[in-house]
Design a protein around this nucleic acid. Structure first.
Lengths: 322, 322
DNA sequence: CACCCAGATGCACAAATGTGCAATGTATGA
DNA sequence: TCATACATTGCACATTTGTGCATCTGGGTG
């Protein structure tokens, strides 16, 4: 930097002092890299004045900080989502869907990294299911945390066994070596009485209680088509049609929800086993992992209800949501 | 800014973590304006790491600070001049010469503001003369300092009176209400004996001693043509021609100097009354005020000899000097 | 001329940022 | 395998920056 033998002071040195001092200060500080105190000395003004001058230089656009980060758009989207939906955090991954890597898998894998960092030893994780959460569970880092408890929030998709290796809960517990609390029963019961009977079982009560008291919830959204529910054959085409007619735009925790994000009034919802949207508010960290064109409306509706505190989604969905 | 209910930590959240973390940190810090500590918390890394990440982001050009100050070029020139010639400071004014405002006047007026700020109560200012320094003296702020002493470094230009109102010293002393020590005698004596006689006078001795002990020196340069020396008729055309033949590229403190800035070996220089380039080194602050195409070479030569600590010049000259 | 207000100024203190160093981890070559 | 160099990390501490507030200042205005 400049010469070293500097003892004297000088400063305002010209008729149109105001603007020249401003320019001089900005130049000394931002270009030559002097400290505010050094600038002050050279201009024989106080440090405070220099500080105010620099603020002015920034405000008037004389000095700009340009940033050109890769992923800039995604980061912007994250900030926008947080702002718009009052989220604690939002994560947006690229929307690079491929033949053997459909969007739910992409998002699930991306989310796994986030959840890895989120979890702490000894915590309880409540999870629902779906292809996204399954992908998440499959790529979770084993050994990232110890003493984890995993608990199902809703009944099983599989009609055969509650310990299905296609359910997020079991895969997650398996990989991470955690104890696992299942909800032994189907997601959709045959009738209201059957549901009541299952619900009243102590095991189910315990699991549901534990789920409600979890530290972290992993959530997803079933869209209006191709949901796991439909694919698993648990809900029929006719069921879906009638739900859609009744205003369903998606499926959240097994329940069909409407435009406003609320559970709609539909017979199928009465048969749904497990804790519902209204029960998860007390779980402090609720991570919603979902993306895809046909899920946008439902995601937006759920977020507007503040059902989630963290969102993990893809770029296209994020754009649609902001 | 973001939501307020933030308790958890998270961070590296993606396969290509290295670059993504970098981008994330830069974005949080520079775009969203979080502090390094806040960024660290969100990314669950230490503040120090954030600091290093940001440094990297700056180095790799991911983040640029663009400044667009008016006068930017002039400020750059000042910095370049300081660097190049080891100056304590440099000031560059616009080269706006007009009909009734020739360059020396422009520079002199500009320099007056600088000298104003430079002077302290009770100091002694040694000055030479020339149109630039005269302009300086005429626009100095009266009352800016008290108890000043002004002293001539070299003999008078005017053949009539030593207290000429066209001499910088008297004008300066007058305007600022300072006591003034003249060098009673002509800048060029008739012969060596006359010079010796004048020099040996106590008044002259006193003045020269005081000049050498001054706090601030005001210096200028006579170019190869149209110098005050020539205009005043003190030096004849023939004198000038012979000096030029002997290698003179300008005039400094009444002496003809060569390409290297040294006083050349020429009879006229032996007749010059006043302290010379070699005597001013002990004056701590030496302000050279000069500009103009025909003075560039001389200014450069003088600066290379470190005869000045501060330079005041105009944009075109500054460009030629760097 | 006294009064008041708005803006500028400086200061004490609080917050944020930067840095040298020692400890730790990690690759390299003998 | 060990030793050696070399990079990474965190920390205590020093420096730099930011801020709320009391004070000053100048210049309308009744």
């Amino acid at each position: 930097m400049g010469p070293t033998h500097m003892t004297k002071h000088w400063g305002r040195a010209v008729p149109n002092a105001a603007s020249e001092t401003l320019a001089r200060a900005a130049h000394l500080y931002y270009v030559l890299g002097l400290t505010q105190a050094e600038v002050a000395k050279r201009l024989s003004i106080t440090r405070f004045k220099v500080h105010r001058l620099l603020a002015q230089a920034r405000e008037t656009g004389m000095v700009r900080i340009e940033i050109d980060v890769p992923f800039a758009e995604r980061l912007e989207l994250e900030a926008a989502l947080m702002e718009r939906y009052g989220l604690t955090a939002a994560f947006v991954c690229p929307s690079d869907e491929t033949e053997d890597m459909p969007l739910p898998i992409v998002i699930g894998q991306y989310a796994s990294g986030i959840v890895n960092d989120l979890l702490r030893d000894g915590q309880t994780v409540a999870t629902s299911w779906g292809s996204t959460l399954l992908a998440l569970a499959r790529s979770i880092d084993p050994g990232a945390v110890q003493q984890l408890s995993v608990v199902s929030m809703i009944g099983s998709l599989s009609t055969r066994s509650s310990q299905d290796k296609y359910e997020a809960a079991s895969v997650l517990a398996d990989r991470i070596g955690a104890e696992c609390f299942y909800l032994p029963g189907p997601i959709l019961c045959d009738n209201v009485d059957a549901k009541k009977a299952i619900e009243s079982q102590p095991v189910v009560q315990t699991a549901m209680k534990k789920a409600k008291e979890a530290d972290v919830a992993l959530l997803s959204i079933g869209g209006s088509e191709m949901s796991s529910l439909r694919l698993a054959g648990v809900a029929s085409e006719a069921d879906y049609d009638s739900a859609t007619k009744a205003g369903a735009i998606g499926n959240f925790l097994g329940r069909f929800i409407g435009k406003d994000g609320a559970v709609i009034d539909h017979p199928l919802n009465a048969l749904c086993l497990g804790i519902g949207p209204e029960d998860i508010r007390q779980i402090p960290v609720r991570v919603l992992c979902a993306g895809g064109k046909h899920k946008v409306a439902a995601i937006g509706a759920v977020l507007r209800r503040e059902a989630a505190t963290i969102l993990v989604t893809d770029e296209d969905t994020a754009k649609a949501l902001t």
